[in-house]
């Protein structure tokens, strides 16, 4: 499923790189530990996290992730937004917690094995 479709179906608010929603999402990856994401997330994965620090952009970019969903109503920091725009990494926000975002994506057919 394409990222744009997911954004629409889950009612996510896009905060950065709204021109990069054409990517095909291969699977979901939920983690708040940077080292874990670096080690295990794969290309095209949609990353669900509550981390808002600018490091998330570097990690997403390095692993060629489809985008980042920030949960629990978290908003990206100013530096994070700036970096994500320049790297073309879409950041979306939702008031939902990780469990529900993963659950709803799963129901849409997005698997959780990276």
């Amino acid at each position: 499923m394409r990222l744009a479709e997911i954004v629409e179906k889950l009612g996510l608010a896009v905060r950065t790189a709204s021109g990069h929603l054409d990517t095909e999402v291969t699977a979901g990856y939920a983690s708040d530990l940077m080292s874990d994401v670096i080690a295990h997330a794969k290309k095209g994965n949609l990353w669900v996290t509550l981390q808002i620090h600018q490091n998330i952009v570097a990690v997403a970019s390095m692993n060629e992730l489809a985008g980042i969903v920030l949960v629990n109503g978290r908003e990206p920091e100013a530096e994070t937004i700036e970096k994500a725009e320049s790297e073309g990494i879409p950041i979306m926000v939702t008031p939902l917690p990780t469990f529900e975002v993963a659950g709803k994506l799963y129901e849409l057919g997005i698997g959780g094995i990276p």
Partner: peptide, 19 residues
């Protein structure tokens, strides 16, 4: 199983989230 897969499976089987 990874976090995403675990949450997804439980959610599909009817376990709700805190919100």
């Amino acid at each position: 199983l990874p976090m995403f897969e675990s949450c997804g499976r439980l959610y599909r089987r009817g376990l709700i989230g805190v919100s």
